[in-house]
Simulated assay, not measured.
Amino acid sequence: MTSQMTISLDLPKPLNLIDDKLFLGNIQSATSCDILTEHKIKRVLSVIELPIETKYPFIEYFHVIAEDVEEQDLLTHFEETRQVIADGHRKGHNVLVHCMAGISRSSTVVTAFLMNKYGKSYSDTIDMVRTKRSQIYPNEGFRKQLKLYEEMRFTLNANYKKFRRYLMSQLMTIENIEKYIKRRDYVESLVKVQRGQQYGCAKCQFKLFDEINVVDNEVPNKQLAKKSFADTNQWCGNLFVEPQKWMLPLKNDRVNCPKCRQTIGSYNNSFVSYDCKCLKHNGLFGIQIKVSKDLFKLVV
């Protein structure tokens, strides 16, 4: 007598209802007329590299260009995607957020939306989403972005230094400085930026940058207060800054004042850690734009 064993495979569904009128799914769910009709989807948000080709006249389509890699920035899109989903809900529409597999990119966007909506932590929210769609798994880069979003209380806070450092590390290469500045300008448009002290060219006093643009290791002020301005063990006297529009294009290793053309500093795009005895600058990584001491001054 031969016994037979039946194996039941619980295959993932193309989409799952995660929250009121909010679905999370894969590419099949976004391109199947039957699935979209069955679930009364009226708005589709794609988080993939290329826009989907199969579209229907009864659907509103939105697209965030994104790869499923740790270096991909989704964080600066969280406010845009939140608005897409929230606007659909205000209209009474069911909204589908999808990527290719419905595992990483789309789950990141849905988790961010729900963190903002309910004011709950990343860990609590991702656990809730996973109860509705068990296979979700944002990649490590996206998980870090969601945790930073939580640190900023579910907003994009351009005044938060750690967020500004994220923008530089995640978005900026020598080929993409303009893209970095564009995304930085966007997140700055969302809040009242506390720009702080202005710095200008020592020769012509042209305004170069603000305190908010200064990049350092955030040595506690009370440590610096114990030392003199010129103590190189605490501060070398130079400043490292975020790229400014007037610096573009960066064609060589020099940075010149746009008004008087005085060389005020240099930049290094070798992506090696900066070696400096100064605690504020030692270990800075990425594209480094250094404004030399004695070539800048505070603007009164």
Rank of each mutant, 00 (worst) to 15 (best):
E150W: 07
E151A: 07
R153Y: 14
R153P: 08
T155Y: 10
N157K: 01
A158F: 06
A158V: 01
N159A: 01
Y160C: 02
K161C: 05
F163R: 01
F163V: 02
F163P: 00
R164G: 04
R165V: 05
R165W: 10
L167E: 01
M168A: 10
S169F: 12
Q170R: 07
Q170D: 07
Q170N: 12
Q170H: 07
Q170W: 05
M172L: 03
T173C: 06
I174W: 08
I174C: 02
E175G: 06
N176S: 11
K179W: 13
Y180H: 08
K182E: 15
R183I: 12
R184A: 11
D185L: 12
Y186S: 08
Y186K: 07
E188Y: 10
E188K: 05
S189F: 12
L190Y: 10
L190I: 08
L190E: 09
V191P: 03
K192N: 14
V193F: 08
Q194W: 14
Q194N: 15
Q194G: 11
R195P: 01
Q197C: 14
Q197G: 09
Q198Y: 15
Q198L: 15
Q198S: 15
Y199D: 01
Y199S: 04
G200P: 04
G200R: 05
C201N: 01
C204R: 09
K207L: 15
K207W: 14
L208Q: 06
L208W: 06
F209Y: 08
D210E: 13
E211L: 13
I212Y: 11
N213D: 13
V214D: 02
D216H: 12
V219R: 03
P220A: 07
N221L: 14
N221M: 13
K222Q: 13
K222I: 14
L224I: 02
K226S: 13
S228K: 12
D231R: 08
T232G: 07
W235T: 05
C236R: 00
G237E: 03
G237C: 04
N238S: 01
N238E: 00
N238A: 03
L239N: 00
V241M: 00
V241I: 10
E242V: 09
E242N: 02
Q244N: 06
Q244M: 03
Q244V: 00
